[in-house]
Write a protein that binds this DNA or RNA. Structure first.
Lengths: 155, 155
DNA sequence: CTGTGATCGTCCAATGATTGGACTAAAAGA
DNA sequence: TCTTTTAGTCCAATCATTGGACGATCACAG
């Protein structure tokens, strides 16, 4: 049996991880596009997956998403231009800013949270509720057991 | 409880998928770098994860890795320059080529397969053998139940 | 208070990675 | 043979991330 065939039929953990990520992302953003959010790309998920309705600092978003500050800044520029977030001064610290979702931003967050929910439901249907619950828990524990990935050595 | 905190403590499937992928990739390539393969980057995994010792066609690699032909071509240029693969004519089809790993390429493949194995073993230790087996199977089934991701609409 | 060092966000230029479109050579099929 | 499809590559354009540096502000030790 050829290695390539074996890896295709019975993929190792590295391959499965990449594929799960790619497929889930694709599902989310193509469905979101169907619902009128065609201008949001996977890249923007780094912000919208974590953003607080009351606002979050850029640095905190960068940390959560595992991107460095420059990258986060660029993503935020884009989201601001597209009308999903705005930058407000942070009352607690005059160096800092608060990234606050606009109405449209909150709308997207609600929709994408729902889409993820739907995907999870699909998997629950595929695996059965018990198996899915275990899978979900094991996935969480697996991620937690692997060293976190930061852009700059994870600082 | 803030949304960002909630998403950090109890990440949804989208976040978990991205993190699993990023962490597994990082683990593989930093460990590989420690073993003298510092010039191989995650990007190259698209080839080396699937490549047959006897050789594989570029188009087939592109399909397996979910990249388009141009991207695959660029990755192959790089791997060839770095001395991990070579391009040979395919005896069966004079249009086609065979990408064949060099000795060093095969060395990397052995090492990275081992590293993945080690990560899987780590998870097995964390979760326990039974739970891990179930997790691994559920992961495979989950990936299979989501539409495949191709670069050009998956053609 | 005042000085010192850390932190917050941003700017810029450089690199990396992916894409779309087009093209040649060869194969496959009517 | 003629036509259509396939395999790989070339090119230019776009998208994404990085490294280094900067002014402003804060925290804290003296």
């Amino acid at each position: 049996m050829k290695r390539s065939t074996r890896k295709e039929r019975d993929p190792d953990l590295g391959i499965l991880a990449v594929q799960l990520s790619a497929r889930v992302q694709r599902e989310i953003f193509t469905r979101a596009a169907e619902r009128g959010f065609g201008d949001v790309r996977p890249r923007h998920g780094a912000v919208l997956a974590y953003l607080d309705p009351e606002g979050t600092r850029p640095g905190e978003l960068a940390r959560l998403a595992g991107r460095n500050k420059q990258t986060m800044g660029a993503i935020l520029d884009e989201l601001e231009r597209l009308g999903y977030v705005r930058r407000a001064p942070d009352p607690a610290d005059r160096r800092a800013k608060l990234i606050i979702p606009t109405d449209r931003g909150r709308e997207f967050m609600a929709v994408s949270d729902g889409l993820v929910e739907t995907i999870e439901q699909t998997l629950a249907d595929t695996l059965g509720p018990d198996l899915y619950r275990d899978f979900r828990a094991a996935l969480g524990r697996s991620v937690a057991s692997l060293p976190a990935t930061g852009p700059d050595g994870d600082a």
